[in-house]
Design a protein around this nucleic acid. Structure first.
Lengths: 225, 225, 225, 225
DNA sequence: AATGAATGAGCGTTCATTCAT
DNA sequence: CATGAATGAACGCTCATTCAT
């Protein structure tokens, strides 16, 4: 037990250092040497605990993700109403990413685009966490709170896509300073839509997009030339 | 002139080869050697036209982006109604990304996370293109088609975030096969919202999220234990 | 005593594992880690019994070599005639190498080319064993069975060289399957020579090689051009 | 042409340096760094001409081997009589190995035990060169100069084995100083055999070795205990 | 304009060996 | 006696980039 604890402590120590370095430099520009230095350990020792540099990277999100989603699960039990639950979920995402900046940077700027990460335990945890959104949407549809004709997968995509976009922008530009202030307007917008229900002008009736019909382009080269 | 044309042709030839290789391998795993081979040119010659590997990467999206946004601008003139314009924009994004897979992969999987790209001409073009969405939203608000209290920046974030998420997923997993079939449900959802207006149960009235109030966590370890 | 026995047992256990691994992988590609695993012991424990990886390697052949040469000595006492003894020696070498493949591989493919091995106890034992050949040759010369003008050292070199060559080939290519079937033809050849005594054509009288006379080469590049 | 010449010159320069270092240190202890330094070239440049360290090693013997065997072929045309030709072959081997010490060391101490070398052009050349011995033996058998019942493969093994043994010993111990002085006694011995034809004592008639009959060992553990 | 040739700079990974416990 | 844990010390190999021609 004591031995296992020590090993776990060492792993955490390395993961912490690695998270800092990866978040700051990205995967390629981070070096094992720098991670080792930051963890006050030898480079060789890192390889006692992780098989490769990429393996180390993949080990980083698991702990944070589990923590965040456990928290999410806990809160969802206390809340009534699908819309309220959605708001809570969006809040917790934004809140957590803001709190765990390194975690956010590693997920948004490094791991999200790595196909090998898809087959990782860390990704599994995240997938399971995201499934909460589907459940809540389905719950809202069942209860009549949400429209019957919704596709939960698409709603989830809108929510996750929006969150990821805002968090990525925040990581890249530093704006807005406080992510949490986006929660309410974003959730309002998604829940209520952007359409003005008071006064829908009839002649602007919605048109559907034709699928598989080629887009007519006036003259490809002209406008930019 | 003739000289300049030849230079431009050479550049296009290199950019085309680079786009293919970068899209397939990513930035780090792509090599100048492979790009040179694909462009049937020497490695050294690439440096006659581009200063660095990253400079070459940054040069790739400009042309495609300009083409896409020119097309978008052209179409928007023909359409009446902000919602219809939004639908058209989403359609054109999805359609274009699907048509220009390499462009999509380079934007979504490589450039989106590169801070230095932010100060690039390619990024400027993209930014300008995305501004169409803002304009349309503002137009919709002004005309009364959209709610008065909308934040155009957030609406844009929802739309762009959703598109990027769906396109990225498509690039990473190959699903869904046809991105265009997502356009209508996504736009419907964003325009009309997910809330069921027929029968809103009163006791589930929407709650707002408190900002800057720490989330109370009962016991960090408890839920998962 | 009991302690010493246990120590000896441990040593044998390690040597056995090491022999297997060294024979299979060669010296460089064998790792202490793999030897330790095969010996069901920790890596550190190996260093309780052997000072270095090379020291462990050098400890391997002693036991087998002693066994083989004891057997050889025993058999030689029972045989009369130098030629018969030589045949017996060659047989025992081939037989033993075939039986102890690992020993053969370690001697032929690893140790034979290691200068430091020359000053080792294992090499001493082998040298002593090989001396049997010298003795038998000298005995044959003294008894008149062999030609008076033989250089025992050279005869020994021919015999050992031939054996080593055949065994090495066998280890490298797997052919011939059975080394022992080479014994008779090889010994016959060495004892009786390759010359046909029935009908030696006079005009092909043997010429001796000039020593220290440069070889005249017509034109280095010519023959192959 | 001029370009190809330069490339070939560079290759030779690297091969020369590599030969020196490999011969002195062995394969594993030789470093690309040291070879590069000795060739007055950068480490990276070595990889412009050779794909791997082992590839470089394998490239070393080809040139020397071709040179030696071309010379051998040339000389063999001038000599009459199989025995004389054999003597010439043995002489040329010993002479060449003595002249090209590095070549000898690389062949005898490094390459001879590398299975991957078997599939190399260098090994092909050596195999072809060694085939001369077979031809000469077959020629001798056909002409009646050698015994009809000889197995050319075994005779070749005796000759090559003896040469390799003597050269290896010479490389390892430095003795004898002059390899060429071994040529005559060795060839005499192999051609004429070691048996004394004047006075063969009848009661020491040659015995054949039983094949596949287990060797009776008095008591395995006793002698060495 | 085009490129063959050359290289500087760097990094992940391995493993024999040590030593405190 | 046994070993878990830690690491020092290397090294092969890659590749973007430069420059003389």
């Amino acid at each position: 037990m004591a031995v296992k604890k020590k090993t776990e402590a060492r792993k955490k120590q390395i993961i912490h250092a690695a998270a800092t370095v990866f978040a700051e430099k990205g995967f390629q520009d981070a070096t094992i040497s720098e991670i080792a230095k930051k963890a006050r350990i030898s480079e060789a020792s890192i390889y006692e605990y992780f098989t490769t540099k990429e393996g180390l990277l993949f080990s980083i999100p698991a702990a944070s993700a589990r923590e965040i989603f456990d928290l999410m699960e806990f809160h969802l039990k206390l809340i009534r109403g699908a819309a309220n639950k959605l708001r809570s979920i969006v809040f917790l995402f934004m809140h957590s990413y803001q709190q765990h900046t390194e975690f956010a940077a590693i997920i948004m700027l490094i791991l999200k685009h790595n196909k090998r990460f898809l087959e990782t335990e860390g990704h599994l945890i995240i997938r399971q966490g995201i499934r909460h959104i589907n459940k809540v949407v389905e719950e809202g549809i069942a209860s009549g709170e949400f429209r019957k004709d919704l596709n939960p997968y698409l709603v989830r995509s809108i929510i996750i896509g929006t969150i990821e976009h805002l968090v990525t922008n925040w990581l890249m530009t530093g704006r807005p300073e406080n992510l949490e202030e986006l929660v309410d307007p974003v959730v309002d917008c998604i829940v209520e839509g952007i359409q003005n229900r008071q006064d829908p002008p009839a002649h602007w009736s919605m048109q559907r997009m034709p699928v598989n019909v080629p887009v007519n382009v006036p003259d490809q080269g002209a406008p930019g030339a």
